[in-house]
């Protein structure tokens, strides 16, 4: 089956934009908050913008802003970032085999903007049809631009923004994640995974503190799924 390449490119790109739109709406207030918090912690607006452009990872950026000092503790910041973003290794390992239509350049450029949200959507897409560079790259570019623009506005707006808690905007982040988790639901094993990950993450967060809760909670959920699955289920990943 051969599709007309131009029509296929446009419809794939359009699907990418359509799928990422709700996540853009959710990421926008988070980006504003990230920029505003960064400036309040003593980063120059240009530094906040550079971080959003080059790092492009909300969780790691919030953690970095939290531990930011002058002069910047380079090793501590790099280690915290590695810990929070270690999940990308598993995410890209899972998605890479589904990028058969990508050229190497498209793969290495596209994966530079791999984030929880566009990765989750790409996995969902790949479960029903072939993942195209048009879909993935358009979605990634739009999501990246949104994050950079939002955090730039946040950095400039800074203190004028007020408390995002007042509007419940801070809860958009967990709400998006809950919606995404529902999309990965596969019954009993998922339920056990979610409970194990949530309890261990919250426990580690309270006892040890961030950023360890992400790695520990994720690991607990993965181990729980391993133990909960029948030994001979024979599903090939």
């Amino acid at each position: 089956m051969r599709a007309e390449p131009r029509i296929s490119f446009c419809s794939e790109a359009r699907d990418g934009v359509r799928d990422i739109l709700p996540l853009i709406a959710a990421a926008l207030p988070i980006g504003l908050l990230c920029g505003a918090l960064g400036v309040s912690k003593g980063l120059a607006p240009a530094e906040v913008v550079a971080m959003s452009m080059l790092v492009f990872a909300g969780g790691a950026q919030f953690a970095a802003i939290e531990i930011w000092r002058t002069p910047a503790p380079i090793l501590l910041l790099a280690f915290s970032t590695l810990l929070i973003n270690a999940r990308h290794i598993l995410m890209s390992a899972s998605l890479a085999p589904k990028t058969g239509l990508f050229s190497p350049l498209q793969r290495f450029l596209g994966f530079a903007v791999l984030a929880d949200e566009n990765w989750a959507l790409s996995e969902r897409r790949a479960s029903t049809r072939a993942l195209t560079p048009a879909y993935f790259l358009t979605m990634g570019a739009v999501f990246w631009a949104n994050w950079v623009i939002a955090s730039t506005l946040g950095a400039i707006g800074g203190s004028f923004l007020g408390d995002p808690r007042r509007l419940g905007a801070d809860f958009a982040f967990p709400a998006v994640f809950i919606g995404l988790i529902a999309g990965f639901w596969k019954g009993r094993t998922t339920a056990i995974t979610v409970v194990a990950s949530a309890l261990v993450s919250a426990f580690v967060y309270l006892i040890v503190g961030p950023p360890w809760h992400v790695a520990c909670g994720a690991l607990a959920g993965i181990i729980a799924a391993y133990l909960a699955a029948p030994a001979d289920s024979g599903i090939v990943g």
Binding site: M91, S94, W185, S201
Partner: peptide, 13 residues
């Protein structure tokens, strides 16, 4: 289980 597990761990606190 990696995706739901990581997503849950991020928001659990």
């Amino acid at each position: 289980a990696i995706p739901p597990s990581v997503l849950v761990a991020v928001i659990a606190p």
